[in-house]
């Protein structure tokens, strides 16, 4: 059992896979997130790969505000990601709704629907900040594996 846990720990530390979901952002944060994965910032140095399937993911990166139609999808994706997982909210909109907080179809930040572990402020955050957040979330993942019941 101990051996499996250690294996899992190295696996998660060396290659945390990331699922990106745009839930009503203005594209600013999305393209910065994509820029993190492309050569100039290259998150693949840390083994981060953008996957399309929630069941493969360890880190859930959400950008944008929650509205009436996508709250279910957000919740669905959240439930499909296996434990241990870390939720990253990127950008002012995902934190609190930002400038759109008062718009008619906006419910608010991501943390109104799902629990958020790390907040990355900025409108849009710089790629460096997103990278910092991803690295921080790897540490959190490690803690979760160490203290988990696996």
């Amino acid at each position: 059992m101990k051996f499996i846990k250690r294996l899992l720990l190295t696996g998660i530390k060396k290659s945390p896979w990331l699922l990106h979901f745009d839930c009503g952002s203005c594209n600013g944060c999305d393209i910065e997130t994509l820029a993190v994965l492309t050569p100039v910032y290259d998150a693949e140095r840390f083994g981060v790969i953008n996957v399309g399937n929630p069941k493969h993911a360890d880190i859930f990166l959400v950008t944008g505000t929650v509205n009436r139609k996508n709250q279910e999808i957000l919740n669905n994706l959240y439930l499909q990601i296996p434990e241990p997982k870390v939720i990253l909210a990127v950008g002012t909109c995902a934190l609190s709704g930002g400038i759109f907080a008062e718009a008619p179809n906006v419910i608010g930040g991501v943390d109104k629907i799902i629990p958020v572990d790390i907040y990355i402020p900025g409108c849009p955050p710089k790629p460096e900040a997103i990278l910092e957040g991803v690295l921080k979330s790897v540490e959190l993942l490690e803690d979760k594996v160490k203290n988990g019941k696996i």
Partner: peptide, 29 residues
């Protein structure tokens, strides 16, 4: 967590006590 870093407040301040530093905001828990 609500601020959109537009710089309007900095331009409006009559005594120039508001400034944007060049460091980006760091992720927080």
């Amino acid at each position: 967590y609500l601020c959109i870093l537009c710089g309007n407040c900095e331009a409006a301040c009559p005594v120039k006590c508001l400034t944007h530093t060049t460091d980006f905001p760091l992720p927080c828990l």
